[in-house]
Structure formats: structure tokens, C-alpha cells
Write a protein that binds this DNA or RNA. Structure first.
Lengths: 405, 405
DNA sequence: CGTTCTTAATCTAAGTCGTGAAGTAAGGAG
DNA sequence: CTCCTTACTTCACGACTTAGATTAAGAACG
């Protein structure tokens, strides 16, 4: 939308080519021309630029039907590097990726006993980032930036300055400026909600790949959602779109949610709610995590009627919530993940899809598929690293030669 | 996204300028340059082109601070004309608009007793269009196209051909190819759902104007919704996005909807459902339309406890459904219309907003306003006419001169 | 071993476009 | 009548893409 000059034009074509390369991993000039709707000549020019910049390289060739062999093109993995951080309830994980999204290194800092203090998280994050940078001093020159996935809504701050601010209500944090939370000297910083980061990872490289309209639901202790319309993640007016967990399904009559209201989706399908319902049937399980949920699912699978009923009700509510999304957004793909989702859904994917179909209108109901997240919860860092990658792709050519002269 | 050549560039800049002109009605070259982020020189070039094409004209000037006066620019209303049709349950209305969206003429055909036959609607539509064209033969050369708002989902058809097809399940019609339904020789035809058309009208010229994230709810016999993300109407994978009416709120426990399911929003907030609830309290009203609803609202206002309770419950469910949208999409504006909405909401707008705020999360809940549709239900034709207008704006320059030589 | 054929990639000439700088139009003030 | 201010236009320039010509690089074949 901001293409005004012929220069922008070249920049945009460069972006198109680079983006296609990132998504396909390997291509040829001809394919690139077709995919980007550019002429062969332009592709040659752009690709040469990219090769000059050390971002792309030719990796051998394949024979053509009797003519000059086709040169295979790929990203030069070492051409750029990104840092991605997952700031979660359990701690801070920072990972280093190259241009091919290979994870080169990782640094983890466990969260202190209470996560109620953003300052501690902040130093842990700064520590981890510094450690990685010290371990790889040679990559400083190709380091694009640091993407951070945070446990809350990231939106423009209050007032006129409007600096990006984290609103992590569920952790009991006061609104915190992202700049205060994340200090990485000399590094461009990007921040977003962790669930959004994961959704973007699924959209680029995972189960939502190539979809133009999709929803990515993350079922865990809380319920997150990434909404994709027209190939792009929907952020809403001020960044908080995708708050699915406190969608009301019970019309004021459901169980009480930790947000204080009644009938929230999370109060039916959140991990705590599921296990609480199981306990209410007399089950002795007292845990709250993966192990407890696995016990529930195993019991249901083994024929325990009470456990089966709990799972059934969970699926029923989930299907209702999904059907509402299907009606509202007409997605072509529903992607489910999160540790609860990945434990609960795989064996019941078809049944869930059937229920969603029954609860939604005929047309949209016949146009979606349910997939499972390819990335698990610990890939927030990868998703976060896609923010600097996106920036790298969008960035106009940096002419280092000019400076040398 | 399809800007590849320098020519596309000019085309796109022309579109930007034209679009801005349509939205602002009147501007100056300097303002245009600022709004479109173009240089003054480019604006001059593009505007000259548009003036040559008879689409734009200078309309006098305003004095500047001591210098050359500023030329005022406006669309030349007679530069292009569009037809918009509203195909509804009551009949077919076709309207003729000029480039300034003045309605120049109108033709109405009442629906035959049973609307169960698409063929009759089809001939009525063709008749009305033909009548208008015969009455204005001089406008043929500037007639851009015909936009049709239809009572159902318009999406790509089944199979490989994928011609646009109307799915009007609620009218009991079998899927009908739009081309079969709308025949207008020599005229480009555009079709969409009527509610979508109205939402676009609100987005361009009405209460949703300028919003980048908004929802437009139409409350009538059925419940429609237009979802706007990033300034564009969301259509979903296959065109059926915005089916809000059969969103489930009651978790299987609510009243039975005409779609057969339980707990649909429409079964609480649809006109029939509201009046039915009133009748259940012993009210003697037997109507189903505007008059009956007005009686209900008047009774509630007059202190009738039963009527007030019915209205209250309606508002409550509506607020819940809206709060879910607020959480999910973080809109900056909620626009409500439809004959039920326009009767029910105006006097209770603040109360409704309060309820929505209480039922949604703090952040998104504090970021929206509720507005009323500026266009009433009979403006579907106007919204429909915006489809050819859009096409006209997006269309590259038509060089008639070249053909003359 | 050379010729011819095929396909891929590159080069070239031509044509477009937007921009900044410089120039022109149009009015007001003195 | 001159100067000043502001709005718009023109012009020279550089940047871009493209169609079509050309070269690169191998395969088939005699």
C-alpha cells in the first residue's frame, strides 16, 4: 500500500522474492518468476542483488529437458541471524536462528519463585540474550534483531507517546513498557503476544501454511487464538484481537472463570476446568499439568465412564466455540495446539470435526479441516524470531559497498 | 500486492487518488498529495489524467494566504454511473447512481406472492434494469456496471468452473448461478450478500467510515454481520464469513431456532424470537413487523414490566454476543442497524455499551464505541452500487483516444 | 568431433514513472 | 508597478520493468 516510487517497486519485488524463498526453502529462477508474477529478467536482477548481499546462493543445478540446466537457488543460511525469546510463566528461553530457521543455540533462565516481578524477568532475558551474543561474536554483523513473545497483550501504550506496552493481566503485572522489559543494546526489538507468535509460526511453516483464512487455537491453562484473514494475522484496533478464552458460551449460567465471569470458554475447556470437573466426579487425581490430563484421557480411553463424560463435555463445548468461529470467519483450516489440545484432540480429531460441522451452518461447515499444530508450546521463540525475519524480508537493500568507498 | 511494473505503479496511484476523492468528496491537490503520500508533481499528473477522462473537475478556488489561490477539486458526478440492486424478500429495487453517489433514478418490482422461485425474481430484476437503461440512454457510455445485493451467501460455485453462485438457504432456493439470476447484456455484474453490501456502505460513507477494525451488525428477522479487519470486509475462505445469527450462545439449552438448532443468537435476538417471548408473557400483539416491535418497545418504555423484561433479556443476549466479538476482534467501532436494531438500540445505546464492557475483557472493552447505522435497510442498493464503483476506481485508465485514431 | 536443438539465463533497447529543482501562474501588499 | 507569497507545472534525471535478442550450457545425433 505504500508503493509510491519506482524504488519502492524494486524494494517490493525484492521482498516478494525473498519471502517466496523463505517459504519454499529452495526454488529456481523460473519458478520464482511464476510465483512472484515477475518477468524472468527482473528475477535475475533481484536474485543477483540478493546473491551479492550474501543472502541467497546457487546450490548446484538440475538437468532440464535437454537444455541448459536449471540453477537451484536457496537462502544462504548464514546470511542473517535472528534471536527469538519466549517469555513465559516458567522462565525465559532465548534461541538463535539462522536465515533457514535452524536453531543454532539456546539459552534458558528459569523463572524465580514468583513471576510477579517484571524486573526479574527483564534481567533474566537480558542475561540470556547477552550470553548468546557473547558466545557468537562473529554473528553480530548479521544479527537482524530480537523478537520477544510475551505472556499478554502487546499494544500501543496509553497517552500520546504510545510506546509498545505489555498488558499481562493474567500474571498480575501492571502495564509495562516493552522497552523497559527488553533491553538489548544495539539490537532492534520486536514484541508480540506469545500465542500470536506461535500462530505466525504455524502460518509460515506449520499446519496453517498457505491458508489465507484460518484460526489457530492454543489450548492450555488459558485459551489463546490467532485469527488469520487473507493470509495475515488479525490484531484488531489495538492489538488485543484473539481473546477467545473469555468468550461467553453459557449466557451467565456456566461455571465461574478465573476472570470472575461465568460461562467463559476457558471455564469449560481450560486445563484447570477440565481436571476440576473430573475431580468433581470423585477422581483422585490432584495434579494440574500434562500428567494429570494424560491420566484423564487414559482413563476415558480405558472405558472409565466418568472420565469419558468429562472428555465428552469438553469436546462438546470446544466444538460449539469452534462452530461459532466457523460461522463467523469461514476459515478453510482450524489448527489446534497447546499442551491440552495436543493431548486431547489427536485421537478425536474426526469426531471433533463432525461435531463442529453439526453445530455450524452447512456451507462454512463443509469447508474447513481440523489440523494439529506442528509446533509445540516451546516454539514460541521460533515464532518470535519470525518478527525480525519479517523485518529483514521487508527491509530495503542495505548498500554496504557505498560506505566502503 | 500486484504492483509489478511501473505502469501498475501509475495505475495504483491513480486508484489511490480516485479513492481519496470518492471518500472526501472535495479536496485540493496539496491535500491529495498529503493523503496519498505522493509528490505534488505526481498528483498533478494523475489529476490531469482524471480531468482528461472527465472524472474529475476543478470547481472554483479558495484564496490562499496571499498567494495563488488553491484550486478545489471534486469528482465530476456525470463522469460515471453505477446501478445497484437490492434483491430482497419483498421485491427487487434497482437504483441508478452517479459518481457522487447521488441517486438519480429508481425502479421497484414487487415480489410475486411466493419468492420460492428464483426465475421470477430474475425476470423482475432484468425488467427493472432494462427500464432504467431505457429511460437513460445517454448514460450507457458511462455506465460502469451493476452491483447486486442478494439474500444469501455469494461464493464460488461447486466444481472446477467455480462461477459465482448464490446460496440462499433461508429462502429455500437451490444454489443458483449468479449469471443465471442476473442478466444484464453488455453490463459488468457484481454480486454479494445484501448485508455485506450494506456493511460496505457504512464503511465507505456511514458510521463505520474510516475505521480499520469494525463490526457492522444488522438486526432484523435474521441477524447479519459484516466484519471489517484492516479496513477491508472479511469474506472468509469461500465468502460466507459473517454468519453471526447462528452463533451458539446457549450451549444447547436455548430456544429452538428456525435453523433447527438450539441457542442460536437469532433465536434470542431475531424479531420473531423477541416478539414470541413477549407473547409468552401474555401480550396480545400478534404482528411480526416494525409495528409490533414498536408496540413492545413503547410498552417497555411505558413501564410495562413484562415488556421491559423482554427488552432487557434481548439486550443482555445481544451484549453477550457483542462482547464475544469485542474479545475476538478488538474492533474500534460497533455499528448496529437493521430495522430491529434501529428501533431497539438508539434509546439504549449507552446501556448496551456498558453491558458489553462488563462482559468483555478490560482492554478491548474500553476501546470500542457503539454507533448506529446511518443507512437504513433500503440502502442495500447503494451498497451494491459500490461494487461497480470499487471496480471503476481500481480499473486502469481507459484510453479512448487511442481507439479514435 | 562437430552440428543442431533445446531450454535457462542474461543483456539490450525502449518505454514508463516519480521526484526534486526550477520555473510559472495568480493573486495581495505596498 | 514592483515585490512577495503561495500553488501548481515543467523538466531533466535516475530508477524500474519488459519484450525480445543473445548467450550459456548441455543433449542428441550423425
Amino acid at each position: 500500500m505504500t508503493v509510491a516510487t519506482t524504488r519502492d517497486l524494486r524494494q517490493q519485488n525484492r521482498t516478494k522474492v525473498l519471502r517466496t524463498l523463505v517459504l519454499s526453502g529452495e526454488t529456481t529462477r523460473a519458478t520464482l518468476a511464476a510465483d512472484c508474477e515477475l518477468s524472468a529478467a527482473t528475477v535475475t536482477n533481484v536474485v543477483n542483488e540478493l546473491i551479492d548481499d550474501g543472502v541467497v546462493e546457487e546450490i548446484g543445478s538440475v538437468p532440464s529437458d535437454g537444455g541448459r540446466p536449471i540453477a537451484r537457488l536457496a537462502l544462504r543460511a548464514a546470511g542473517a541471524h535472528m534471536l527469538g525469546a519466549d517469555v513465559g510463566e516458567r522462565g525465559v528461553a532465548v534461541e538463535l536462528f539462522d536465515l533457514s530457521m535452524n536453531r543454532l543455540d539456546r539459552e534458558f533462565r528459569e523463572a524465580p519463585a514468583s513471576t510477579a516481578d517484571p524486573a526479574q524477568i527483564s534481567t533474566a532475558l537480558a542475561d540470556a540474550v547477552a550470553a548468546l551474543r557473547e558466545r557468537h561474536p562473529d554473528l553480530e554483523s548479521t544479527l537482524v534483531g530480537l523478537g520477544v513473545g510475551l505472556p499478554g497483550v502487546v499494544g500501543p501504550g496509553h497517552g500520546s507517546a504510545a510506546v509498545p506496552t505489555l498488558y499481562a493481566q493474567s500474571l498480575g503485572w501492571a502495564p509495562t513498557s516493552v522497552a523497559d522489559l527488553v533491553s538489548a543494546p544495539g539490537l532492534e526489538v520486536f514484541a508480540d503476544n506469545g500465542a500470536n507468535a506461535l500462530a505466525v509460526a504455524e502460518l509460515w511453516f506449520g499446519a496453517a501454511r498457505g491458508a489465507s483464512d484460518a484460526v489457530v487455537g492454543l489450548l492450555g491453562r488459558g485459551i489463546g487464538l490467532g485469527v488469520v484473514c487473507d493470509g495475515r494475522l488479525v490484531r484488531g484496533a489495538l492489538g488485543s484481537a484473539g481473546e477467545w478464552g473469555h468468550t461467553k458460551l453459557g449466557l451467565g449460567n456456566g461455571p465461574v472463570c478465573r476472570c470472575g465471569a461465568r460461562g467463559c470458554l476457558e471455564a469449560y475447556v481450560g486445563a484447570h476446568a477440565i481436571l476440576e470437573r473430573w475431580r468433581a466426579t470423585g477422581a483422585s487425581e490432584t495434579g494440574e499439568g500434562w500428567r494429570a490430563l494424560s491420566a484423564l484421557v487414559a482413563a476415558a480411553d480405558a472405558g472409565d465412564a466418568a472420565a469419558a463424560a468429562v472428555v465428552d463435555e469438553t469436546l462438546d463445548v470446544l466444538a460449539t466455540a469452534l462452530a461459532n468461529l466457523v460461522n463467523l470467519l469461514n476459515p478453510e483450516r482450524i489448527v489446534l495446539g497447546g499442551w491440552v489440545g495436543l493431548r486431547l484432540v489427536p485421537a478425536r480429531r474426526e469426531e471433533l470435526a463432525d461435531r463442529v460441522r453439526r453445530l455450524s451452518l452447512d456451507r462454512p461447515g463443509s469447508q474447513f479441516t481440523i489440523e494439529l499444530c506442528r509446533f509445540e508450546g516451546d516454539s514460541v521463540a521460533l515464532g518470535a524470531a519470525l518478527m525480525p525475519l519479517q523485518a529483514f524480508i521487508d527491509r530495503p537493500r542495505v548498500r554496504e559497498r557505498a560506505a566502503v568507498r
